[in-house]
Amino acid sequence: MTGERPGERRTALVTGGGSGIGRAIALRLAEDGFATAVLDLDTEAAERVAEEARQKGHEAVAFGGVDVSDRPQVDDAVRRVRETLGGPALVLVNNAGVSATQGFLKITDESWNRIMAVNLNGPFYFCQAVVPGMKDAGWGRIVNISSSSAQSGQQYMAHYVASKAGLIGLTKSLALELGPAGITVNTIPPGFVDTPMLRDSEERGLLGGSVSHHAELTPVRRAGRPEDIAAACSFLVSEEAGYVTGQVIGVNGGRNT
């Protein structure tokens, strides 16, 4: 799979690309031949991932300090990506997200709004910013990284789950509207992937057991890897996936079927 056809060079934009799943996706898309923009709030993390891709001979540029919940910053970042990489972002992966664990009655307006701002408003802003360029090109791929918790529910995470469920709904609606323009929109809800966020939950005793314990309860008998999500994303942004849109592609080792 490649991001380049004869006479054509394509740019991929990955939010939250500085670590975990976002890092794996950014590196995979760079390997696939896309000129890859690695966006993250953490400037140093974004630069480390972009440099890692460049060391392997791929084209990647870091754009740090980007708060996806701030529309002016989003619009500016999309403009800078276009200017720096010489073309519009024709692949968008909305991966940036934040999590929180709170009893329902303890969720404050501030906490609710922050979760929604990053996890749902951010993808909305980025989609609005990149879709015009995709329409002009007659081709585009959008992949939204949601969460398996939006399919099953999760206690003490009502705000997080609601934001990710909203992202699934946004995906389905955009797929119907943008399909005639040559743009596909899909979502991957990862389940139990070994990331810094999962390990933090383990350390805080929020998993109800260790990562190893839960891996043994997973049908494939292991935790997911960020590279598992990146592989699915690689397919969804490829030419071969042009007939796949509006889909929820679970990558969870069989934990949700």
Rank of each mutant, 00 (worst) to 15 (best):
56 K>W: 09
58 H>D: 05
156 Y>F: 13
106 K>V: 06
250 G>H: 15
122 G>T: 05
186 N>T: 06
125 Y>V: 12
94 N>W: 04
73 Q>R: 12
118 V>F: 09
113 N>G: 05
226 P>K: 02
109 D>Q: 13
209 G>L: 04
214 H>C: 01
76 D>Y: 05
48 R>S: 11
57 G>P: 09
105 L>C: 10
231 A>N: 13
143 V>K: 08
197 M>D: 06
59 E>I: 15
48 R>Q: 14
216 E>D: 09
111 S>I: 10
168 I>Q: 01
176 L>E: 13
92 L>D: 02
37 A>N: 07
32 D>E: 12
157 M>G: 04
109 D>S: 11
95 N>D: 15
36 T>S: 00
65 G>T: 02
32 D>T: 04
196 P>Q: 07
104 F>H: 13
56 K>P: 11
118 V>N: 11
37 A>S: 10
246 G>M: 09
210 S>W: 13
103 G>P: 11
150 A>Q: 04
132 P>I: 05
22 G>T: 05
205 G>D: 03
7 G>D: 11
188 I>V: 14
46 A>H: 12
224 G>S: 01
145 I>W: 07
92 L>C: 08
71 R>I: 13
35 A>V: 08
253 G>T: 05
29 L>W: 05
27 L>M: 03
125 Y>E: 11
255 R>D: 02
9 R>L: 14
13 L>N: 09
113 N>F: 12
122 G>Q: 11
46 A>T: 08
65 G>K: 01
127 C>Y: 08
124 F>I: 05
230 A>L: 04
234 S>C: 09
130 V>I: 07
128 Q>E: 13
44 E>S: 11
251 V>K: 02
64 G>R: 03
230 A>Y: 00
103 G>V: 12
12 A>Q: 02
234 S>H: 07
168 I>W: 02
180 P>R: 06
226 P>F: 01
238 S>M: 13
239 E>I: 12
39 L>M: 14
100 A>N: 09
133 G>A: 14
89 A>F: 09
48 R>E: 15
11 T>C: 13
49 V>A: 03
93 V>G: 00
149 S>E: 05
242 G>F: 00
229 I>H: 12
34 F>L: 11
52 E>Q: 15
225 R>G: 03
147 S>G: 06
167 L>A: 03
170 L>H: 00
70 D>A: 10
32 D>W: 06
83 E>Q: 14
53 A>K: 02
191 G>H: 03
175 A>Q: 04
255 R>C: 02
123 P>H: 08
142 I>A: 04
41 L>N: 00
138 G>N: 03
42 D>H: 11
33 G>L: 09
62 A>I: 05
164 K>I: 01
249 I>R: 14
57 G>R: 15
248 V>G: 03
